[in-house]
């Protein structure tokens, strides 16, 4: 198999005595959508933070395209191709939808340090930003301040910002959390389109099992910070360790009809 786009080796972080992520090793290849599941507090978001650089690891390493980035800060990892959509919406509240996306386009183009030209004179950036805004179904709100958007639109904007970065690795952290039934398909379509491109590396933290089943090529299960299962969705979902992890009781004693959830 070709070299993984992203790899973690023995990735560990300790907060005092608590080991939030415990020696997680996994490799992620282009063209694969990997879902990361596990009960609340399993360390999914912490694992994401270790990959995208918001937290630095206590031990272990992160490699992007075979290059060790463990000591890089979040900004440098973003420039190395890590894109992140956050679980708790993380926008520029007083800037418009367009400006939010445009900042990502500009970050990708690397033109942030220009103090002489006018922000509104770069037609190419404007066009690109508009394209991502349209893909997220936000065109009619492009001039609205991010803080004034309803929750569902904020989530869409969160995803649009990451898309506009055009990263090598897309990290979605519960992209549909708290969204209305109408809004969920917009996000899922975006992820599906991304996946259909066939060459993107996508990581997805998601609680909704039907979403995971429909999208994932592979599932990682985290439990108490440890990687307890890794493999084909159908097999992993049915496995006893996963059911034990989710329900905290040995598999088989689960009452009929109860679905594993977070």
């Amino acid at each position: 198999m070709s070299r993984p786009v992203l790899e973690t080796k023995g990735l560990t972080i300790r907060f005092g005595g608590h080991v939030a992520v415990d020696s997680v090793s996994a490799a992620f290849h282009a063209g694969t959508l990997t879902a990361i599941v596990g009960p609340n507090g399993a360390g999914k978001t912490t694992y994401f933070n270790l990959i995208s650089g918001q937290l630095s690891a206590t031990a272990g390493s992160v490699l992007i395209d075979g290059v060790e980035v463990t000591n890089f800060g979040a900004a440098r990892r973003a420039r190395s191709g890590i894109g992140r959509a956050f679980q708790l919406t993380n926008l520029f509240p007083n800037l418009t939808v367009h400006e939010n996306v445009r900042l990502a386009v500009q970050a990708r183009a690397g033109g942030g340090a220009n103090i002489f030209s006018r922000w509104d004179s770069r037609r190419d950036w404007i066009k690109q930003a508009d394209r991502f805004i349209e893909a997220a179904n936000l065109t009619d709100k492009h001039a609205t301040a991010a803080m004034a958007l309803p929750h569902g639109d904020k989530r869409k904007l969160e995803v649009a910002i990451m898309m506009a970065l055009e990263p090598h690795v897309f990290m979605f952290d519960e992209p549909t959390a708290g969204m209305s039934v109408d809004d969920v398909p917009v996000i899922l379509d975006l992820i599906k389109k991304l996946k259909a491109g066939g060459d993107k590396t996508i990581l997805l933290v998601e609680h909704k099992m039907e979403v995971v089943k429909s999208l994932a090529d592979r599932i990682l299960v985290l439990h108490n910070g440890r990687l307890v299962a890794d493999g084909d969705p159908a097999k992993v979902i049915g496995s006893t360790v996963v059911q034990a992890a989710y329900l905290g009781i040995p598999a088989g004693r689960r009452r009929p009809g109860e679905a594993p959830h977070g």
Binding site: S52, A74, N90, Q106, R122, L165
Partner: peptide
């Protein structure tokens, strides 16, 4: 009002996010 100026505003609004954009 330059690209640089917008980055400053982004940092004022949410430095964590600005960092995550690179």
């Amino acid at each position: 009002n330059s690209p640089f100026g917008r980055v400053l505003q982004a940092i004022r609004e949410n430095d964590f996010r600005a960092e995550a954009l690179g």
